[in-house]
Design a protein around this nucleic acid. Structure first.
Lengths: 336, 336
DNA sequence: ATGAAAGCGCTAACAC
DNA sequence: GTGTTAGCGCTTTCAT
């Protein structure tokens, strides 16, 4: 392992000069800087991040806490975060808490709190009271994405508004028999988002004087498979079934679409389906949906954190990220 | 920031004792250990990973280099890796190289080579010659997952065999007019895997005396959208179209399925479709496919690396991870 | 513009 | 069983 003093020795200068030269600090003649740069490259010198971290107190790494990596929303946010971090020269440390209750403690104490990262982004995690408090006492900046966390800044869409927009769109098409395919419930995953959307669904229905039938509030767990099964039941009776389904995620909407196809129900002729997300498959599937942009959300949150790290103070920002209705072929006017 | 000597001072013992006690090393009386543990917890002491890293030369972190995070295969492998890493007390640092050519250099030099990680896992990345050589000269263990890399150990399925199995299955059903929906081509992503599968397709066809029509080797880029568009062309002519499509990924198979539905082609009556992956959506979609298990592959590779880190030497392991045909409703005997 | 030297917070010999 | 001390490889005053 070749270190900074090897470079210094090879040139007959001090380590301080090498350090300054390589980091572009002033106080080094251009000639010296050039020589140092060349020598460092020639020797294949690469500074040790541990040593630098110890000396500066900064790790140049940011942590992201997620319930799982392989879900559409989470991985998309991660991509957005990563893009920004890389540009800023930061590394991305991912803590996935998928199910394993036993390891949570470890993650929290060993990594989150351990000065291994300069900032933390928490994504849609359901934390225990104790964990939440630990977060708030962190000495580095933190933020939550996708699901709000009490006492922590938040980046995400206005879930209530987004859900209401979806339901109102269905109503504007003349639908009155509207079902909701709900998400949430899975271990560790935040339950604020599904709750907000469910509430908004009910409130919007109520606002328009429409009845909410309890058996039409189906549980799809944000997933294709679960939603398909639930929809198979929901849509089973041709004489008494909803004419529209509002799905709290696109994946669930795909499940409903699939179930409809299996049951020979024409979409959008006999059934309208709307989702939330604008998943990669939504456009080719012709799914009407409320678009959100997780990559943008991740990038935005990362920027906020990075800004705070550099500029010192936390910046102000709008309360929510945008969402928008995208009309496609899965919804239609009632009776057309 | 409370450090090890604060704990030591609070107890009137030496830092060495605290260090030993907290790490469970021998040479500490159980009584002392208990007192230290208590005091550390009370003070909220958390060791600095930078300091420990500097002193031990180990970072307790593993790096994973991926072309992108938000693709089914990549994120699933990541989840598998993460699970094992967490159990071993290691952190996961993700380097996503999504498109940004400018940042590759940075990633390589700043992070990969910078003693920030104890081991590296490279996933399906297409590396330049120079990068490959840099990898091989790394002083820590490395491995590739999903796409082989010259000079680096590899974990993944036998792609040629998997593709051949899929094609042979179609042939066993009586199909002779078989098309291939190919993957690959995207920036940065490994092109070995798509090539192996394409070759296997052609060889298997040939082996059975079947003709490969060039216009029936369509490019789907491993994605739903691209594959759907390609399939719309591929299947356009009712008088001259394939009776079966072998898709190099499930996502592309979904695209073909979608195109078939749009064109009013009955599956499996008029068209059989088979994929590779066993994507989460494959079962609910009734897609016949060759299953592989990316989580297992990630976990397996992580274990290999971790084992090497602890036991010192590299372990032997079978040349490929398993794959298996899963028969579902998207394939059928010709003319039935 | 450059150098000397004192840490950063821990681990690991080596003493006792 | 426990303490002392010398690093680990950088950054950062403070001199010059």
């Amino acid at each position: 392992m070749i270190g900074i003093d090897d470079v210094a020795a090879s040139l007959g200068v001090s380590t301080a000069t090498v350090s300054r030269a390589l980091r572009g600090l002033p106080g080094v003649s251009e000639e010296t800087r050039a020589r140092v740069t060349t020598a460092a490259a020639a020797l294949g010198y690469v500074p040790s991040s541990a040593a630098r971290g110890l000396a500066t107190g900064r790790t140049m790494a940011m942590g992201v806490l997620v319930p799982a990596i392989n879900r559409w929303y989470f991985s998309a946010v991660l991509d957005g975060v990563d893009r920004r971090l890389r540009a800023a020269g930061y590394d991305l440390i991912v803590f996935s808490l998928g199910g394993s209750g036993a390891n949570r403690e470890r993650v929290f104490h060993r990594s989150i709190l351990r000065k291994r990262i300069d900032a933390l982004l928490v994504m849609c995690m359901h934390l225990t009271e104790e964990e939440r408090l630990a977060l708030q006492e962190l000495e580095y900046p933190s933020i939550s994405v996708g699901g709000a966390l009490e006492g922590v800044r938040h980046v995400g869409i206005d879930d209530a508004r987004a859900a209401a927009d979806a339901v109102e769109y269905l109503i504007s098409l003349g639908h009155t028999r509207i079902a909701h395919m709900r998400g949430g419930g899975s271990f560790d995953i935040d339950f604020e988002v599904p709750r907000l959307r469910e509430q908004a669904f009910r409130r919007t229905m109520q606002l328009h004087g429409l009845a909410v039938r309890e058996e039409w509030s189906a549980f799809g767990d944000f997933r294709f498979t679960t939603a398909r099964v639930a929809a198979l039941t929901l849509l089973a009776d041709p004489t008494d079934r909803p004419t529209a389904v509002f799905c709290s995620s696109d994946e669930m909407a795909f499940g409903v679409l699939r179930a409809a196809a299996e049951l020979g129900i024409d979409v959008p002729g006999e059934l309208s389906v709307i989702g939330i997300d604008d998943h990669e498959f939504a456009e080719p599937m012709g799914l009407t949906t409320i678009r959100q942009d997780p990559e943008d959300q991740g990038a935005f949150a990362a920027d906020l954190l990075l800004g705070e790290l550099t500029r010192g103070a936390a910046a102000d920002y709008p309360p929510s990220r945008p969402h928008a209705l995208v009309e496609r072929a899965s919804t239609g006017r009632i009776g057309s």
